[in-house]
Design a binder for these strands. Structure first.
Length: 760
DNA sequence: ATAGGGTTAG
């Protein structure tokens, strides 16, 4: 009996196992099936059977349940190559590259070695992690074992090397392939194109035909996109044209890439042709094509066309909307950009990082600094994470209004998110700190950088120039040279500017000469402006003037302005008149020029000439400008003061000025920066030099001035390092439009040279 | 048991 029972039991058990195994083998579907099978295996005491464990493991792996799969692997009685293969391949397939490589290491430690099934997916993992070294080792392993000639291994090696931007190796493997295919060929060619290696890209592309592989649409598109991404815009367009003349039909991918290139070439004629072509191909609703069209027209300065293309789009896309915002920004239509942004945000469009960053950059670049800061805050409330592009878009806004607290916050944010290795982020931080009077903090950022490019060096050099720190500036320039970093136009602008501020005529001249002699950089307008200022401030006005006559191009308003300012400092009437007359022709509506001349006359006691200047202002349409009367009074006051700076009547004079400014305020007029600065400057200069920011603020307070002036005073405050007081002025600015001229142009020298009235 | 191509922000 007992035997029978035992037999029956065995029989039942056997049956259950058979049934279970057949059920397991057919379980290929859902995760719950896998779990049921696992439970069944445990119940039947089969879970440690190698075959069962391997099968379960594969089931879990196919559902990305790696923890469960791992448990099975670790409790596996004898993990075999097959178990590892399923798990490694699944990890690699689901882009879980870290796990892929961990499993590989575990496998190796168990003295199991990769075969043709495992090698490709582990190499793919190296590609995904840009682990060139390990990839290289696997390649070596493949060569040693003869697995490297497997076609799957070969192509995975090509792709891995491309992803690790080791194109030479990729090329080598490609050349040795027994059966090179289109995919590897196109990947290699476009890899070269993306890196900007035009000759190799073209070579690989052309050689594909010789190898009997016909390039397909993807190959062509890869070339066009690659050239576009590496800034070889002309090559991209030529490739598109070649494609066309070879009779190969293109698609939305080709069109969107080529349009991007056309935009950068600013060739609207080709742009319109491609536009027509896109319409014929029925690509009007392709979001990439529309985005590129919007961007292209924007870059070509056709704002209306940009709007039209966007409006024609039926279902508005975020990308296209972003392109529109940046296009409007590019064409100085800041309010329209903001309106667009608000409109689509209100309509519930899912704005992304690019949308927010574009908008912030737009505000930073167009003087709407507080708005930029506010947008940054709003962005985070909206749950959109700023990235390493957002930060350098925001920081210039912090720098411009000396918003140190905001700048610091952005710095902390960057540290937390690991953006501080980014050269753009660091350069912007350096600029922000030096603009906020924290030159030491700027230097710290600079010193901590793992890598530096020209922009970083220029930022640091510009910082020292802004602070008039000649020794440090020269030092950094020398460091730059010993670090094999070649200077550019901007570097010399800073150097010349700081020499000019410090009155180092010979040093400045030697830099100016070495620029073209040693570095092959031809001096541009801003460098001449610096030189004129350098010589002019030092009283060498004739030399400055003769330099202007030797210039290879016509001096612009900045250069003439530098001369006029110098003439004012040295009361040189003769050259002052020459400069002023040129400026009146170049920018007749700029009151600053009239004032400078009037000041020279005032210093020389030329009453009738002053009247003439006043008439000229009237003729220039500035007659209703209450500033005229302001200058009148002010200049006469200056005349009283001429020759004696510590005039006992100073207090009365200031009072008089104060009264006048009140009157002006009552009549609704806010004096322009230049008017007020002429008066404030003398006192300011002293306070700035002594670091008396409080007094500076008081002087400012006496004069009820415009936001523009507030901005300038703020700059001075932050140079003193008193950002606290500076921040107080932000509210003034928020209320009205800011008048900032030349914000983007000549960023480095505008502070030093354009306001040559010796502010700092 | 996979692999190559797209736009927009500094």
């Amino acid at each position: 009996m007992t035997r029978n029972v035992q037999a029956l039991h065995l029989f039942n058990n056997f049956n259950r196992k058979i049934a279970y195994l057949s059920c397991l083998n057919s379980a290929t579907g859902t995760l719950s099936e896998a779990k049921q099978a696992h439970a069944g295996a445990l119940k039947a005491g089969l879970s440690t059977q190698p075959h069962v464990a391997t099968k379960l493991l594969a089931l879990y792996a196919s559902h990305q349940c790696f923890t469960e799969a791992d448990i099975l692997l670790y409790s596996h009685p004898q993990p075999d190559l097959f178990s590892f293969t399923t798990l490694i391949n699944a990890s690699s397939k689901f882009k879980n590259f870290h796990r892929t490589l961990t499993l590989l290491v575990k496998m190796l430690s168990g003295r199991l070695f990769p075969d043709t099934h495992i090698l490709p997916s582990t190499i793919k993992a190296c590609a995904g992690l840009s682990a060139l070294k390990l990839g290289h080792q696997l390649h070596g392993f493949g060569l040693a074992t003869g697995l490297a000639s497997d076609s799957l291994v070969e192509s995975s090696l090509v792709h891995m090397y491309i992803k690790c931007s080791a194109l030479k190796y990729a090329h080598n493997v490609f050349n040795r392939m027994a059966e090179p295919d289109v995919i590897c060929g196109s990947a290699l060619a476009s890899g070269y194109a993306k890196k900007g290696d035009v000759s190799n890209a073209t070579m690989v592309f052309d050689e594909m035909g010789k190898l009997g592989i016909e390039p397909n649409l993807v190959s062509w598109n890869g070339m066009i996109a690659g050239f576009n991404q590496s800034g070889h815009f002309l090559e991209a367009v030529l490739m598109f044209q070649r494609m066309h003349s070879d009779g190969i039909g293109c698609d939305g991918v080709s069109v969107s890439s080529v349009l991007a290139a056309v935009g950068d070439l600013e060739d609207v004629i080709i742009g319109v042709q491609v536009h027509g072509y896109a319409i014929r191909l029925g690509l009007r609703s392709d979001k990439y094509v529309v985005s590129s069209l919007v961007d292209m027209y924007g870059k070509c300065g056709c704002a209306l066309e940009t709007l039209r293309v966007f409006e024609e789009m039926e279902k508005k896309d975020v990308g296209a909307c972003n392109a529109l915002i940046s296009s409007l920004s590019r064409n100085n239509m800041v309010d329209d950009a903001l309106k667009t942004f608000r409109k689509y945000k209100g309509q519930g469009m899912e704005l992304n990082v690019v949308s927010w960053t574009s908008m912030i950059a737009c505000c930073s670049q167009h003087g709407k600094h507080p708005v930029a800061l506010e947008l940054f805050r709003e962005m985070q409330i909206a749950g959109v994470k700023p990235n390493s592009v957002t930060i350098p878009s925001l920081l210039p806004a912090c720098a411009s209004i000396a918003a140190l607290a905001h700048g610091k916050a952005a710095h902390c944010f960057s540290l937390k998110r690991g953006f501080t290795d980014d050269v753009y982020v660091c350069s912007a931080l350096i600029d922000m700190y030096s603009s906020c009077g924290r030159i030491k903090a700027a230097r710290q950022c600079f010193d901590r950088m793992p890598r530096r490019n020209l922009v970083c060096w220029n930022a640091m050099l510009g910082g020292y120039a802004m602070h008039g720190m000649i020794k440090e500036a020269i030092n950094i320039f020398q460091l730059m040279q010993s670090s094999q970093q070649l200077p550019d136009l901007v570097s010399f602008t800073s150097l010349l500017s700081v020499c000019s501020q410090c009155g180092l005529v010979e040093v400045g001249q030697s830099y100016f000469n070495s620029m073209s002699k040693d570095y092959g950089i031809e001096a541009r307008m801003e460098h001449y402006a610096c030189m004129v200022s350098l010589l002019g401030r030092a009283g060498k006005l004739e030399e400055a003037y003769s330099l202007m006559n030797e210039m290879p191009f016509e001096p612009d308003a900045c250069v003439w302005g530098a001369l006029l300012s110098s003439c004012r400092v040295h009361h040189n009437m003769q050259l002052g008149e020459v400069a002023a007359n040129r400026l009146f022709a170049l920018e007749p509506k700029n009151p600053g020029n009239y004032i400078l001349l009037s000041n020279i006359y005032a210093a020389r006691g030329k009453w009738t000439e002053m009247d003439k200047v006043r008439d000229m202002m009237k003729r220039a349409g500035l007659k209703k400008n209450p500033g005229c009367s302001w200058i009148e009074v002010k200049n006469r006051v200056h005349m009283l003061l001429a020759g004696d700076k510590s005039h006992p009547q100073m207090a009365q004079i200031l009072e008089k000025l104060n009264k006048l400014s009140m009157e002006m305020k009552k009549s609704g007029y806010l004096p322009d920066t230049d008017f007020v600065l002429q008066d404030v400057e003398e006192q300011e200069k002293e306070h700035i030099l002594c670091g008396h920011s409080e007094k500076l603020a008081v002087v400012f307070g006496i004069l009820n001035t415009s936001p523009g002036t507030a901005l300038t005073v703020m700059k001075n405050l932050r140079i003193c390092g008193d950002c606290h007081t500076a921040i107080k002025f932000i509210s003034r600015i928020e209320r009205r439009e800011i008048l900032v001229r030349d914000t983007n142009r000549f960023h480095h020298f505008k502070d030093g040279v354009c306001s040559c009235g010796d502010l700092w």
